[in-house]
Amino acid sequence: MNAQREKLRMMLTSAIFAAIIGILAQVTIPLPLVPITGQTLAVGLAATILGSKYGALSALLYMLLGAVGVPVFSGMSGGMGIIVGPTGGFIVSFIISAFVIGWYIEATKATVTHAFIANVIGMFINLFMGTAWLKVAASLSWPEAFAAGFLPFLIGGVIKALLSAWLGIEIRKRLASARLLPYSSSKRTA
């Protein structure tokens, strides 16, 4: 029974993080093709705190909510048109990015340094996938796609990776000490 309760708690926590991703998506700095948003910060937090499985579940739930029309994407938008449009690759990549961030932290130690490295790796996954998708969806050349979907996000991405690492590890430690995270998610917390 304990394992079932723990699984339910983590699934509910994943749903809460999907909502957090949707809320931070509304924090935007508009750019011509792809806005700077708080989504990647929230995805990094979800993965750093919840680990690979539940961090990726949060990102998947977020994407599915938006795909069915709930206005959780940037600018209070939603629908499949966003997923298949120029910014869709960034959204789809959140799932892979969250999984990799969580996996890296689980495979090493839950320290700010390792979480920062994991979040930077996740940032590059997001930027590479999003830029490739942008190139195809917007019929851009590689240099145009790189200039619109990659370069403008590097500095902010590193800052968000640092924030995700620092805040994520602090929150993770507190949740683990309050026994709100399962032992397996927090056993490597240092």
Rank of each mutant, 00 (worst) to 15 (best):
V70Q: 09
P143F: 07
A147M: 12
P35F: 15
Y62R: 03
V43Y: 05
M76T: 10
F153I: 01
I83H: 11
Y62Q: 08
F73V: 14
A118P: 04
I101D: 07
I83G: 06
V136M: 10
M76Q: 14
I95T: 06
I125R: 13
L57M: 15
E144D: 15
L154G: 03
V84G: 08
V136L: 15
A132M: 07
I95V: 14
L50I: 09
L60E: 04
A56F: 03
G44K: 11
G149A: 09
F146S: 07
I91E: 10
I91Q: 13
I121D: 07
G78F: 13
F153N: 00
A59P: 11
G157K: 00
T113Q: 11
G130K: 00
A107I: 05
A138D: 15
G51E: 01
A59Q: 12
G156W: 00
E144L: 10
G102T: 03
H114Y: 13
M123R: 03
Y104S: 08
P152L: 00
K160S: 10
L50P: 04
I91D: 08
G102L: 04
P86M: 14
L154D: 05
P71E: 04
G88F: 01
W133Q: 03
G78W: 05
A138S: 15
N119S: 06
I159T: 06
G81T: 10
L151D: 07
I95L: 08
P143S: 09
G81Q: 09
W142V: 11
G79E: 05
S93R: 05
S58N: 08
A67Y: 06
F99P: 09
G157D: 11
I155M: 05
W133P: 02
L41H: 02
L57G: 01
L61D: 12
V72N: 09
I82M: 07
L140P: 04
A59W: 06
G51H: 13
L140C: 02
F90M: 12
G69Q: 05
I49L: 12
G75I: 09
L64V: 14
S141T: 14
V72I: 03
K135A: 15
A67V: 06
I49Q: 05
L134C: 02
A107Y: 04
E144C: 04
T108S: 10
G51P: 14
I121G: 02
A161D: 04
L140H: 02
P86R: 13
L154P: 01
F146H: 11
A132T: 12
G79W: 07
T37L: 10
K160M: 10
